[in-house]
C-alpha cells in the first residue's frame, strides 16, 4: 500500500476536524474562537476531497471539544468529522450532528426579537437540517443559513 502523503502535519495529541467545506473554514475558526487560544494549530484549506468538493481541515494540539462546541461546529460545517488523537493514533471519530433543538449557541436574525434585547438564552427548534432552518421559540421567525450567526 502506498503511504498517503499528509498535506497538513500530524499532531501527537488533540483533535482533527476534517471534512469542513472549504468556504466554511474561517467560520469554524471564528465560532470555536481558535484565534484566541495558545494551542498549536495547523490548518489547510481547498484540499481535494472525494466526498464534498474542496475541503478544509483543522488540527488542534492538546484540545478536546465539549458537546456544546460540537453542536456549534455542526451548524456551520454539517459534514465535519472530529478525530480524537492520542499518541498519533485516531482513538475516536465523531460525526457532528445538528440537534433537534439549538439552545444558547445561535443568534435569532430578527433584530426585534426579545432574545436580542434581553439578557437571556436563545432557543430554536430545527425545522430543516439540510438547508438549515431554525425556528425561534420566542419570536417564531425562521433563521436560515444565510442569516445564521453562531455565538
Amino acid at each position: 500500500m502506498m503511504k498517503k502523503e499528509l498535506k497538513v502535519n500530524a499532531i501527537k495529541n488533540g483533535t482533527v476536524i476534517d471534512h469542513i467545506a472549504a468556504k466554511n473554514l474561517f467560520k469554524v475558526i471564528s465560532i470555536l474562537k481558535l484565534h484566541k487560544i495558545s494551542n498549536q494549530i495547523t490548518f489547510g484549506n481547498n484540499l481535494e476531497s472525494h466526498k464534498h468538493g474542496n475541503k478544509a481541515i483543522i488540527k488542534i494540539s492538546d484540545l478536546l471539544f465539549e458537546k456544546n462546541e460540537i453542536d456549534k461546529i455542526a451548524l456551520v460545517a454539517p459534514n465535519a468529522v472530529l478525530n480524537v488523537i492520542k499518541n498519533y493514533e485516531v482513538v475516536e471519530k465523531k460525526k457532528v450532528n445538528i440537534p433537534d433543538e439549538v439552545i444558547g449557541i445561535a443568534k435569532c436574525f430578527n433584530p426585534n426579537c426579545i432574545t436580542n434585547n434581553e439578557s437571556m438564552q436563545t432557543r430554536f427548534s430545527v425545522l430543516d437540517k439540510q438547508k438549515l432552518a431554525l425556528k425561534c421559540h420566542y419570536c417564531e421567525k425562521i433563521t436560515d443559513e444565510e442569516h445564521l450567526y453562531v455565538f
Binding site: C108, N112, I114, N117, E118, H137, K141
Partner: peptide, 27 residues
C-alpha cells in the same frame, strides 16, 4: 409588548398565567 417573543419569555418567567395582548408583529 413591542418586541416579538416577549410574551413567550414572560410566560416562562411568570408564576401566574400570561395572556398575550400582542407581541410586536408576532402574535
Amino acid at each position: 409588548h413591542h418586541r416579538e417573543g416577549a410574551a413567550r419569555y414572560a410566560s416562562e418567567q411568570s408564576s401566574v398565567p400570561i395572556i398575550n395582548a400582542g407581541d410586536g408583529a408576532n402574535q
